[in-house]
């Protein structure tokens, strides 16, 4: 069986010698909503940067059974949509529509197809009709959904989100959860927001000090309070 994401013994050391990942093993089945739990500094973001080859995994990561190489990295980046924690890292155009179109234009699609994808992505995150607004005039909740649309415009097969609820208020969090639940498909959500993960994810892994210390069905892991406490999640 091929997994959407398969990681075997992934290690990563920062240039300054800090070990960020110390042998991570992880499998995400197709169609699964997967929660990657970990306290601040556990290595979540570093792990996510390996999933689309932004950091070199030296063959330790396979996406849909394909190891990431120089030759397929662009195709893998199209198939795996990465949503960064800070929307300001993804939104830099004067207008929302241009930000969402950035990915499709990089694919070299015709303008007709590009605007169709922009429309589709904005509708999926509930921002239809906002094409001409400037992203830096939007609220954080809107910007986070806008950055999600920017990733969706590539029509990825896997959606990967880094701390999607960071700094969101109650409404922003609720709206984002509704959008993600409606999207379905394979999703990897890195977070330490237990309520959010519980609402959306069927499977969960706990990352601590660069290792996966537990993984399994969400209800089982999330009920294990001593485990969560030990790794700084409650």
């Amino acid at each position: 069986m091929t997994y959407a994401v398969e990681i075997r013994d992934l290690t990563y050391t920062y240039p300054d010698g800090t070990a960020a990942l110390a042998g991570v093993d992880l499998r995400v089945g197709e169609g699964t909503t997967f929660g990657l739990l970990g306290a601040n500094g556990a290595g979540k973001s570093t792990l996510l940067l390996h999933l689309n080859g932004l950091l070199n995994a030296n063959g330790a990561v396979a996406i849909f059974g394909e190891k990431i190489t120089r030759g397929n990295v662009r195709e893998i980046r199209r198939r795996l949509g990465l949503v960064f924690q800070d929307p300001d890292d993804m939104l830099f155009m004067p207008r929302l529509e241009d930000d969402v179109a950035f990915g499709p234009r990089n694919l070299g699609l015709a303008e007709g197809e590009v605007s169709e994808r922009v429309k589709e992505a904005l509708a999926a995150v509930g921002l239809s009709g906002q094409e001409r607004r400037s992203p830096h005039h939007m609220s954080l909740g809107e910007r986070r959904r806008a950055s999600l649309a920017a990733a969706l415009a590539l029509r990825p097969d896997i959606l990967v989100l880094d701390e999607p609820t960071a700094n969101l208020d109650g409404r922003g969090r609720r709206e984002l959860a509704a959008v993600l639940a409606a999207l379905g498909g394979t999703q990897v959500i890195a977070s330490h927001d237990l309520g959010f993960v519980e609402k959306l994810c069927s499977e969960v892994a706990v990352l601590a000090a660069g290792r996966v210390v537990a993984s399994g069905p969400a209800e089982q892991i999330l009920a294990d309070e001593p485990l969560l406490r030990e790794h700084g999640l409650v």
């Binding site: 990465l82 960064f84 890292d89 993804m90 590539l154």
Partner: peptide, 16 residues
């Protein structure tokens, strides 16, 4: 650091 993250986000969306 912001510049590095923006660059990573651009590459993630197929920027060549």
């Amino acid at each position: 650091e912001r510049a590095e993250r923006v660059w990573a986000a651009m590459l993630s969306r197929g920027y060549d």
